[in-house]
């Protein structure tokens, strides 16, 4: 049993390592300071000067915006799913099942769905459109992750607060949220990782541009699409740059997740019953 566990852990970690090594080795050659600090020049996609600052900034804006918006929406949903705040367990389970189903829907469907609505509204591909489509993609996982985090808060902890004369809401504010905070942060990180890596949902909704967006209504570039487009060119040096872009994406996710984890572990210092 133990051997099996070790084996599967090794397979997972090993597979990831290989992926990271390939991306790093392939991308390292093309990676340069210019890539992360400059906008693409006219001939960038033909192998000329410039960088991917547009896609880096775009991805951070898209993923950051979607994570924020999804968080604001997911928190009340997750709280509603708790017996103490929503009430009906059967209804909650129905919502849980729908969220799990939505999580399984391919992100291109959200992209197409968002695009249809945008067409109908006469909106063009924009940062706002991309954020909304990405929000749909990450909302289910965020709500479900938060839901599970809340479910882990023990009844006896809540009872300790109620027994002191606290209402359900006071208990939620001061005890449940506090106890759940590190887990909630993990849910947010999970969503961010998914959002920043998703290409299909932003393809039609956010568009692509060589410039930085000046407003929510401007189109915006993103790293996954930068990878996609560069891989699709016939030029080897541009394909190399695709790996470099993927590497930048990886580093961004890594930075955010390490930072988040540090924050979470600091916050969990105060958790009851560790």
């Amino acid at each position: 049993m133990r051997a099996l566990m070790m084996l599967s852990a090794a397979a997972v970690v090993g597979g990831l390592l290989i992926l990271i090594v390939v991306i790093t080795v392939q991308g390292a050659g093309a990676l340069s300071w210019a890539m992360v600090t400059q906008l693409p020049s006219g001939g960038y996609y033909l192998g000329k000067e410039g960088g991917l600052l547009n896609a880096i900034v775009g991805s951070l804006l898209l993923a950051g915006g979607a994570t924020l918006l999804a968080g604001v929406l997911a928190l009340p949903v997750a709280l509603y799913l708790q017996r103490d705040y929503g009430g009906d367990t059967r209804r909650a389970n129905l919502v849980r099942m729908s969220l799990d189903l939505l999580w399984g829907v391919p992100s291109i469907v959200y992209g197409a769905f968002g695009f249809t609505i945008m067409l109908y509204l006469g909106m063009r591909a924009s940062l706002l459109g991309g954020i909304l489509a990405l929000t749909l993609v990450v909302l289910p996982i965020m709500a479900r992750a938060m839901d599970e985090v809340f479910r882990l808060v023990s009844v006896s902890l809540k009872e300790a607060s109620w027994a002191l004369g606290a209402t359900r809401w006071e208990t939620m504010r001061s005890v449940v949220l506090r106890q759940a905070l590190p887990g909630l942060l993990t849910a947010v990180l999970l969503a961010f990782g998914r959002a920043i890596g998703d290409a299909a949902s932003v393809l039609f909704t956010a568009g692509y541009t060589d410039n930085l967006p000046q407003s929510l209504l401007d189109p915006v570039a993103s790293l996954p699409l930068a990878v996609f487009f560069q891989l699709g060119t016939p030029f080897p040096e541009v394909q190399q740059r695709a790996y470099a872009a993927a590497f930048i994406l990886l580093v961004l996710v890594l930075l955010v997740s390490v930072g988040g984890r540090l924050l979470a572990s600091r916050m969990s210092r105060f958790s009851a019953d560790r």
Binding site: A160, W162, A163, F270, A272
Partner: peptide, 17 residues
């Protein structure tokens, strides 16, 4: 509940100082 203090079997501290 304020009038009736409760001490449970397993001490349950709150997640704070």
């Amino acid at each position: 509940r304020r009038k009736m203090g409760l001490l449970s079997q397993k001490p349950q501290v709150l997640p704070m100082s």
